[in-house]
Every structure is written in C-alpha cells, then in structure tokens.
Design a protein around this nucleic acid. Structure first.
Lengths: 186, 186
DNA sequence: CGCTCATAGGAACGACCGTACACATCGGCG
DNA sequence: CGCCGATGTGTACGGTCGTTCCTATGAGCG
C-alpha cells in the first residue's frame, strides 16, 4: 500500500500559461461579464491556482486590459483582411454586410465583448485607449475604399447597428443592414 | 445638563424616501458605474441607513431597474417633446442635432448612464426590457417625421454617434453630426 | 553535476458585499 | 385616546473579493 499520499504538489511546467490566462479571461468576460470576472473565476476556468494570476498580472485591471487588447486585435485584423480583399467600393460594402451579419452578429460573443468593453472603457482610461485604437483601425480599414468623412460616419452607423442588434428582440436582417449602409455610403 | 444622550434614535419622517433613493441611485451609477453601485454606496449618498434600502427594494437588481426606468422615461420624454415641437422634417433633423449635442453629449452623465444600461441590459432581461422600451419610444418619436425604415436607420446611427462620442478623444462636432444625419435622412 | 532564480502553489488577511432580522417609532384610523 | 401596521434603524451573518506572503519546485546554465 502506498499509504495516504503526503499531499504532493503537482507542479506543472506550463510555459504558455500567461497566454492561456488571457484567452480564458476573454471567455469568462463573455460568459459572466466584466463584473463577474474575478481572479478566482479565471483561475478556476483555466485550472490554475489563484496565486498564478497575481503572479502573471499585477492587477485585475491589467488582466482585463490584456484580454480586451487581444480581442480588439483579433477583430480589427479580421475586419481589415475583409476590407483589403475587397477589389472595389461595392465589394467593400458587401464585405461590410458580411462582417456585420457573419462575424459580429452571428455568435453573440463578439457582441457581448464589445458592449462589455464599451462600458468598462467609460471608466478606465487604459481601456479607453483600447477602444480608441479599435476605432482608429476600423476607420483606417474603411478608408481603403471610403473618404475619411464617410468612413467615420459609416463607422458610427456600424457601431449603432451592433448595439441595436445586441439589445433588440428583432434585429435588422442582412437586407436592412445593406440598405442602411448603402444609403449612407452607396 | 442633559447628560450623555442615551443614543436616541433620530427617526425621520420621510414619505418620499423611495423616490429619493431612485434618484440617488442614478447619481451613484453615473459616478461609479453599476459595478460600484451597492446598497451601502446608495445609502451613504442618500444619507439613510442601510436597512432602508432593503425595505424599499426587494433586491439590488430591483433598485437598478427602477433607476434605469426612471432615466429612460426622462430622456425619452425629452426627446419626444423635441420631435413633437418640430413643425416639419427639416426642423426635426435640426432638433435631432440639438438633442445629440445639447442633451446627450453635453453633460457626459447621460452618455455614461446609457453605456452602463447597455452593458447591464446585455445580461439582465429586466433591463433589456427597459432598453427595448427606450428604442421603441425613440423610433416612434422619429416616426412623427420619418418613415419607419428611415427612423430605424437614424435611430441606429444616433446610437453609434452617442457611443463614439462617449469613447472618442475627438468627438464629432455639431456640423459633422448634422451632415451625417442629413445624408441618411435628408 | 549543482546552483539559482523564474515560476508554480496554497493559505491567509482585511475589506466589502447582499441580505436577513430584531427592534424602535409614530401617523392615522377606529 | 389607544392601538397597530407601515416605516425607520442598527447589527449581524455568511460569502466573495483582491491582494499579499511564504514555500516548493525544477529548467537552464555555468
């Protein structure tokens, strides 16, 4: 018999833990909101001890900032790829419809993360820098096909469409979205 | 000499306390966010004992719902008054610019409350009903001068403009806002 | 091979939270 | 006037939180 194991600590070698924690934090934010995102919640979701979080991130705010920064990077890169791939303005508008209906509004996850980020950014300057970076990248992507003034207007409309979709019981369908965008930038 | 007062309780007759608590809760939300709004924070701001909150509101969620409902009522009524006062479509568009630059974007308070409500509504069905009521009233006000399809598009654009203004370092000025709205519904 | 320090792990502290509850008070009605 | 239920008040409980701190481990390097 081995007897009662002397509570050996199972130390794990885990060189990419920091990255994994950022990804897990995004999942937790999407599921429970920023308000429900605690060190303990992320630790449990990532299956690491509590102390590991304060080792890798100086504060909870820093963890949130890292998570939202990664999310913005992903979405902005995806959107810029769509805009880069569009050969002309008409194709760009269609790609925009696809971005809205396909990427953003499909899962609900991106929607929720966006709204959580907006609210958190309203109070945290570090997160406001993240949203400003997002807006600026988004506008630059649009400016591949639109003049700066129109790009800004379209960007605002897209933001509003996203928000309405997140909160409305009967969100606009692809056709309504297309015609709204075309009216502004057709 | 009165001697050491035997810790008399200073009971206060305060028939409108419930209303005052709702108003105070809105102030606290605007200042510290939903996340920073606790029974204790509201009690301190309203100068009432902690127990008074649980007497007047069954739960913190109920208090938040009452506060946001009141806020939406105020803003929606103000907006409808503006639309009702506009004699024609052109005046309505100008009133819309005034609503945005004057009412919403001026103080920052309405901006913050809106974003806080959006984020909270994403997770709480009761609050989602409040946002849906807001959207529906807003659209009905716009429909005094615009067809339903256009009203919906304008409503979404307004939402986006509000959000961009809340988060941007260089928000659009009245002229830019006007031209964006006119492009969509001129 | 042996040392060392970045990393992993676990427990604890003090603060704040929502809520429940027992008790005090008094306006208004019978 | 005398009661009583609506309202006001203070305290306590159990829980979660961010953060700190000490210890343990082992990968990489000299």
């Amino acid at each position: 018999m081995t007897g009662p194991a002397p509570a050996r600590r199972a130390r794990r070698h885990d060189p990419e833990r920091r990255d994994r924690l950022v990804a897990t934090a995004l999942d937790v934010i999407a599921e429970r909101g920023v308000a429900g995102t605690s060190h303990r919640a992320v630790a449990a979701a990532a299956d690491v001890p509590l102390g590991s979080l304060t080792y890798h991130f100086a504060s909870l705010t820093e963890l949130l900032a890292a998570a939202f920064t990664r999310h913005v990077d992903t979405v902005a890169a995806r959107f810029d790829a769509r805009m880069r791939a569009a050969p002309d303005r008409a194709a760009a508008m269609e790609a925009l419809v696809g971005h809205l209906t396909g990427d953003l509004l499909a899962s609900g996850r991106d929607l929720v993360l966006a709204v959580e980020l907006y609210a958190a950014a309203a109070r945290d300057p570090a997160l406001r820098a993240v949203t400003q970076d997002w807006m600026s990248r988004s506008r630059r992507s649009l400016e591949r096909h639109l003049d700066p003034v129109t790009a800004r207007e379209v960007d605002a409309l897209v933001e509003g469409l996203v928000l309405h979709s997140a909160l409305s019981t009967d969100p606009m369908d692809a056709g309504q979205i297309r015609s709204a965008l075309l009216r502004l930038a057709g």
